[in-house]
Design a protein around this nucleic acid. Structure first.
Lengths: 237, 237
DNA sequence: GTGTACGTTAATGTATACATTAATTTTTAG
DNA sequence: CTAAAAATTAATGTATACATTAACGTACAC
């Protein structure tokens, strides 16, 4: 059962960053965080009233938070049955991966056609090195984090804010599933090399090659994940 | 100045489709429609109070509608200054076109790898024919509508609901600008052929070619539009 | 025992009241 | 007359009250 470990007001005292934020924003972030962590689990339903009581705030900001989360694709609002964390099926993951493949390959293409600074390259190289390190030390969580950082840097460097936002949105939807399967999949030894190859193609200004490399990287990832989900009979998560 | 021609309640009586919809949903659709039509113009600010009075409903559903529209990228909520229709700059259009290019090319690729029915092909061929017809009769609005229908069919046939939703979202953001420039641009005579070529590539099952054709089609469209915006010094719309 | 009609409950959609504070106006000190 | 300070206003963020109705339970007919 979903329960919060602290109330909003406690959070507000502790957390200096949220001091001036509207309650709706705080509630939005708090609920979102718990969904991504899998503390508020897929398929689980919670009544508005329950959220209100746990947060110690009124229905209005809770409702606003829910509306935003629904638009973001993380929950469904089911009238009279509260909100429900949208479970992600194998088909959903396929949808998400196809979108990320398209958008990130486009990002790779854009970067290859753009003049990047040393700093920019560093923001790609650093996560790649972190991935390698993490793999050597068998730290899968750290690896996943560095991998996310790389992919985020990729879209970030394009300067296309909308592209970045959409990628983050779907990344959010997929996040849970990726962490579930993290310890079940074979060691992602190929990823580091793919990233290095991609950066080289970008450096060489070869847009088609960069896009192609990243497309294949993502397709590989998609297949690994979908196979895993089917092997373990995860119908939805 | 932005004024509604009818109140929500009048609309509810007329419009049987919205009979059971929540007021928040009705307000959302009404405001969205007026933004897309350019009745509620880019850069224009309206106070919540004004919307409440025009719609004859309370602040709560109006607010919910605004939150949704903000998430959708159509407006900004500016505390104490109401909501503001986000103007679209040349850079914004470039961002949007890059995303649509990536997603629709992916759609083309997916369709080429998929078995489509005769019905499916019809949903692509019909808008293409409509485009040709409209062009012959110099009906630019009809042409634009058919063109939209083609692009929508393209993503729709993939079966990827998320892909479709994202494309529609950005299409919504760009809609206004496309209509602005519709009568300023050279007759889009090449578009029909591009669409025919695309369908042929899909039929032939040539995924890379299909993606490539559509990518080039979109890039052409992007350049035409951006040049137009610069020629006419439309800094933002 | 089963199924239908009725009454009750409770969750949400909507309206409204209240609190907060940015923005504006007025006042006043120099 | 100028500029800082104080008072006022108004818009929003939040809380709460009210209305509606789906969902549930109970009673009754058969």
């Amino acid at each position: 059962m979903y329960t919060l470990t602290y109330t909003i007001k406690q959070k507000m005292q502790k957390d200096t960053t949220s001091e001036n934020l509207p309650l709706a924003e705080i509630a939005y972030r708090a609920i979102r965080e718990e969904i991504l962590n899998n503390q508020f689990k897929a398929g689980e339903q919670v009544l508005e009233k329950a959220l209100v009581e746990r947060f110690g705030i009124s229905r209005t900001p809770v409702r606003e938070a829910c509306v935003r989360l629904e638009k973001e694709g993380l929950i469904e609002i089911k009238p009279r049955h509260g909100i429900r964390v949208k479970p992600i099926s194998v088909e959903d993951m396929a949808e998400i991966y196809d979108i990320l493949t398209a958008l990130e390959s486009e990002a790779a293409r854009i970067l290859a056609e753009k003049q990047l600074t040393e700093e920019d390259y560093k923001s790609l190289a650093a996560p790649t090195e972190a991935m390698e390190q993490a793999l050597e030390n068998d730290q899968l969580e750290a690896w996943a984090e560095a991998d996310e950082a790389f992919h985020l840097a990729l879209v970030n460097l394009t300067g296309n804010q909308r592209l970045k936002q959409v990628v983050l949105q779907f990344w959010g939807q997929a996040h849970r599933v990726r962490y579930f399967t993290l310890h079940l999949r074979p060691k992602p030894t190929g990823s580091t090399q793919d990233h290095i190859d991609l950066v080289n193609a970008i450096k060489a200004g070869n847009a088609n090659l960069a896009a192609e490399i990243h497309r294949n990287h993502r397709i590989k990832g998609k297949h690994t994940l979908l196979n895993l989900l089917e092997t373990y009979r995860f119908v939805q998560l």
